[in-house]
Amino acid sequence: MRLPVNSGWLLVLPFLLLVGGLFLGPILNVLWISVTDPALGLENYAQLGSSDTLRRILWTTLRVCLICTAFSVVLGYWIAYAMVHAKGPAQSRMLGLLLVSFWISVLVRTFSWLMLLGRNGVVNSGLESLGIISAPIPFMRNELGVLIGMVHYMVPYAVLPIFAAMQSIDGRVVQASRSLGGSGAQTFWRIYLPLTKPGLVAASLLVFIINLGFYVIPAVLGGGKVLMVAEYISVQVLVTLQWGTAAMLAAILLFGVLALMFLMSRFMKLSTVFGGART
């Protein structure tokens, strides 16, 4: 007997039902809450125009995300470039280090940054005993600390798509440029960099998307002083029980993320981004 549809769909069904029922459905419900709680209408969205707090939070989120993305992508490019040009065993070792850092828990990292960056942390006491600074630098409870923590977390995410893009470059293109008289710098800026553009764009968008909804690092290292969207949502839900405002912010965050995802899919497939480390 032939089924009217491909029997492969039967295998897809359990996962599809789970994601639909437990994830996408409830997310639609959150969107619904954003226009119905406390009353039907766009009241929650109107707060964006009237509330300085909300505008400040959105602005902080955007600013931190942009700065973090810029740093992560530049550092990530550097690492990816060295990795692509490393010989077999060295390349595996570099990739190993990168993946280990990719999988180390965000909580462990955050805890460690607390110990490193505090007033009496390793960094401050080290600099003081070397006589470089006389008073401790305030790293914590400000944007500097949040940025350090976030860039540190995001670099591996930036490396993977860039590395995947670099691996697909035909090395003869670079040789051709050199043999036609191009200098090393010219070859890099005019040939190599443009060829890695899909990877760069995908990496920037991926890092930016993950940053937008980042909760743990801003909440702990910002110490309430660097209020970003995710932390504000959690306060609204867990403390002040303002589901309407929280759902509205979640909706904005969601549409932002989906729009950027769509943009990213034109440059690189999501599975390539995450699976880019197959060597």
Partner: peptide, 17 residues
């Protein structure tokens, strides 16, 4: 999508459900 939608949104959705 569960990989890229911010966990905070997933957290709201699950808790509401």
């Amino acid at each position: 999508l569960p990989l890229v939608i911010p966990p905070i949104i997933a957290a709201m959705a699950f808790s509401r459900l």
